[in-house]
């Protein structure tokens, strides 16, 4: 965080993302269960720093309570400075949010509880969408993600990221790449994981996804596997997210600064 925000003090870095008094959501990714989900110790470390930065109300959330529990999070729907629950606790808004090709009901956890969200995806490939990291982690905020996997998720994933509450509240992306997966995702396939042992941190989800995608492609090449384009699942939605209509972030490697810390 210090490196990413060019601060000498970690709390000063965190205070660039959140403000005291805000309710901060941590959108984890627990779809695949305990094998390749956002790690509990990482989330605990983030919570610790947020609390030190003056945040008194943190909500760890994902799609379903059962998903959270499968990844070893403890569901706690009420009380305490840290709550943890799925969208099935509060449900969804009643009015559609629309942009481009998508129309969805947004999770009330996002729209009514959180002032800010830190996204905590994992680094893995996806059998339909190519890869699944920061941009696709927002699918946990809508009621109908299963409708948006056609055409390798393009332009749907980019369009979902344009929905106003998502665009405005997702402030930071920390991709848990402790364990990464290059094939067989989104399910946990241990034979295709490797201990990358890193984190990808960015404010720009497009740049993060592009960088993570290249990491996966390099691993696939190392293992003698075809690139995602040849498998007909190149994640073109990343370029769409960067295009003139969306401008969610940058996917040009010449313009992405990767700092290795």
């Amino acid at each position: 965080m210090q490196a990413a925000f060019d601060r000498d003090n970690p709390l000063e870095a965190w205070r660039q993302v959140v403000r005291p008094g805000e309710v901060v959501g941590l959108k984890v990714n627990c779809l695949a269960g305990k094998g390749i989900s956002t790690n509990v110790p990482l989330v605990e470390a983030v919570c610790e720093r947020l609390q030190q930065a003056g945040i008194k109300d943190i909500v760890i959330w994902d799609r379903l309570n059962s998903d959270l529990e499968s990844a070893r999070f403890r569901v706690n729907e009420r009380g305490g400075p840290i709550r943890c629950f799925g969208n099935d606790t509060l449900g969804y808004e009643q009015e559609l949010s629309t942009y481009g090709s998508v129309g969805s009901l947004l999770a009330r956890t996002l729209t009514q509880v959180c002032d800010a969200v830190i996204s905590l995806p994992v680094l893995k490939d996806h059998g339909i969408a190519g890869v699944t990291m920061a941009l696709k982690n927002v699918f946990g905020a809508i009621h109908n993600p299963n409708k948006y996997h056609l055409d390798v998720g393009n332009p749907y994933i980019a369009d979902v990221n344009m929905l106003a509450p998502i665009r405005s509240k997702f402030r930071l992306h920390i991709c848990d790449a402790t364990t990464a997966q290059y094939e067989g995702g989104p399910s946990f396939m241990p034979q295709w994981t490797w201990p990358y042992n890193g984190l990808l941190v960015a404010r720009d989800p497009v740049a993060l996804d592009y960088t993570g995608w290249q990491i996966i492609e390099r691993k696939r090449a190392e293992k003698g596997m075809k690139p995602l384009k040849e498998m007909k699942r190149e994640p073109a939605y990343i370029a769409t997210a960067a295009d003139a209509h969306h401008r969610i972030g940058i996917n040009d490697p010449k313009k992405i600064e990767v700092m290795e810390v």
Partner: peptide, 9 residues
Amino acid sequence: DDRERGYCG
């Protein structure tokens, strides 16, 4: 995939 649903949900 395991634990997932198709388009129809």
